[in-house]
């Protein structure tokens, strides 16, 4: 797609999917992300935790350039996926977002049929040659979203008519339908009950086999359950980043310790 070699991350090239260096994000005068460096591992779940307003969503949205749509938002620094600078002038954010899918905090299916919700991405990117192709893609995506059995008999029903948990899984199916390599999830379970949460967590664990998953969560238990790597943000700084086990059992920074033990946030 784009071809700038990245000497800094040549080591462990096959393991590291995303590298960020010196990332700064400003909303007008507000400095929301301060000089963040992070390497996100391929085919693993990385969770971002931290108190509200610390910049987790902001950083996540840098990874698929969703911040481009906010007029006052300015991103500086270097973010590479597979070694390619995603903020390069030649990179079309539309193409990038086909490669880096996103699931939002609030389930947001299109007010269209379940089928059309999932088929939309493949359609606009021209991934299916014909209707039969598209049917296959839709079914595969819905199966990956662990919702196929519940909706296979009513693919023409509106997606907005599903329950909250079903809607969120539909949105996950929609995101995976374009065969992205990276899946960004911003608090995907915050609107869900424990059962739906468990289903989505199970799903995330499945998705790890094919995708690089980055998830923002407010639930320490969830981060501990689903992720292999954890990043702790505080007031725009990336305070600590490491193995999930280590972050929760043996944090190096005092702020991390206070947060994971429930004393700040």
């Amino acid at each position: 797609m784009y071809d700038a070699p990245n000497p800094a991350t040549n080591v462990d090239q096959q393991d590291i999917k995303i590298t960020a260096k010196g990332v700064q994000v400003y909303y007008g005068e507000t400095h929301a992300i301060k000089d963040v460096d992070v390497n996100i591992v391929d085919r693993a779940v990385t969770s971002f935790i931290g108190p509200s307003g610390c910049g987790k969503s902001t950083f996540l949205r840098c990874l698929n350039r969703m911040n481009d749509t906010i007029d006052i938002c300015r991103v500086e620094g270097d973010i590479r996926i597979d070694g390619d600078d995603i903020y390069d002038k030649r990179v079309d954010p539309v193409q990038l977002r086909a490669k880096v899918g996103m699931v939002f905090q609030k389930p947001n299916p299109f007010p269209k049929s379940i089928y059309d919700n999932v088929a939309y991405g493949p359609r606009i990117h021209g991934l299916a040659k014909n209707k039969a192709d598209l049917d296959v893609i839709v079914e595969r995506a819905l199966r990956r979203g662990a919702i196929w059995d519940e909706v296979k008999d009513r693919l023409d029903a509106p997606g907005t008519g599903l329950s909250g948990g079903q809607q969120q899984r539909l949105c996950i199916a929609r995101a995976v339908a374009t065969e992205p390599e990276v899946l960004l999830m911003d608090e995907p379970c915050s609107a869900l009950d424990p059962i739906a949460t468990a289903q989505v967590e199970e799903l995330i664990d499945e998705l790890r086999r094919d995708y690089t998953v980055v998830i923002v969560t407010h639930s320490m238990q969830q981060a501990a359950r689903v992720s292999q790597k954890t990043a702790f943000f505080h007031l725009g700084d990336l305070v600590e980043y490491g193995e999930t086990d280590q972050i929760f059992t043996n944090p190096k920074d005092e702020r991390t310790e206070r947060y994971v033990t429930g004393r700040i946030g």
């Binding site: 749509t69 539309v94 977002r97 299109f110 007010p111 939309y120 606009i124 949105c171």
Partner: peptide, 23 residues
């Protein structure tokens, strides 16, 4: 029109025109 719909469309890689005219 709620911003969540725009985000959803942008999130799957719709261009600005597609977001406006299709959603």
């Amino acid at each position: 029109v709620p911003p969540s719909i725009r985000e959803a469309a942008l999130g799957v890689g719709a261009s600005k025109h597609q977001v406006v005219f299709q959603h």
